[in-house]
Computed example of a mutant assay.
Amino acid sequence: MSARDEILSAVREAVAAARRPVDVPPLDRPDRPGDVDLFAERVADYRATVVRCRADEVDMAVATALRGAGSVVVPEGLPYAVPGALRDEDLTATELDRVAAVVTTATVGIATTGTIVLSHGPGEGRRALTLVPDLHVCVVRFDQVVDDVPAAIRRLDPDRPTTWISGPSATSDIELSRVEGVHGPRRLHVVLVG
């Protein structure tokens, strides 16, 4: 057997093993609501802007976050009014690169990590939409905040793609110089609603 055949055989075995069902024991505690104050604090720790508002104030909070941003794109199914926003109708990467901001909703927020999870359904848009514009304004309702990662996982559909966001995009070089905006939006603005 050649080295190539050995590698392909190992890959086939790994893929077959990954397809076998896995029994995951249930957690012995119920899904608890997350601590919204902790979530807001952790999101802010990532250099994101966090604003709290009531449900009837979301449109104004989003408009304030977008002030001076320039062009804005929104996904299909966004339940909030964003005057002048372009609807995403499979915009190309080049077209998205010309857009300054995006407004989305989220599937879940994780209090202990300050992470927002998008499952790219209605109101959340496709992954490229949330990674290309420089500013991401994300609306998260209080009832979407859960305590920890296992609670978040229980709320997600395993057949849907997800994007996990912990603050604005950032990376560091070998000398630990922080650079923002390399792998996604340079600025994250979270509107917490409840």
Results as ranks from 00 to 15, higher is better:
R54I: 04
M1Y: 09
V72S: 02
I153H: 10
G194A: 10
V103H: 10
T163G: 06
Y46W: 11
T105M: 07
V182R: 09
F142C: 10
P83K: 01
D143Q: 09
G123T: 13
G34P: 02
H120D: 11
L118E: 02
M60N: 08
L118F: 06
Q144N: 09
F39T: 05
C53Q: 13
G84T: 11
E41W: 00
G34T: 11
V137G: 05
S71W: 13
D147V: 01
G125H: 14
I7C: 01
H136F: 08
L96H: 11
D23S: 12
W164V: 13
A111L: 06
R19F: 07
T105Y: 00
S169Q: 05
D173F: 00
L86D: 06
Y80V: 07
P33R: 14
R154Y: 00
F142I: 08
Y46K: 08
S172Y: 02
L192W: 13
P30L: 13
G77H: 04
A44W: 00
V145E: 05
V140I: 15
S9Q: 13
G121D: 06
D143V: 11
E13G: 03
A151L: 02
V149Q: 04
R29S: 07
G167T: 14
M60S: 15
E57W: 01
G114M: 14
R154L: 06
T94F: 12
A65C: 12
A69S: 15
I153N: 12
V74P: 04
A10N: 04
S119N: 12
L156C: 15
D157E: 08
R42N: 01
G125C: 11
R42A: 00
V149E: 01
V73I: 09
L96V: 15
V11T: 02
L78C: 15
C53F: 10
V24N: 01
L192G: 08
V15T: 07
D173W: 00
V82Y: 00
V50N: 03
R54Y: 02
R29L: 02
D45I: 07
G194C: 02
A17N: 09
V51Y: 03
R187M: 03
D37I: 03
D88S: 10
L131S: 08
R20G: 04
P83T: 07
V132I: 15
L118S: 15
S177P: 01
D147K: 00
E57G: 15
A93W: 10
A10L: 07
S71L: 11
A55H: 06
I116A: 06
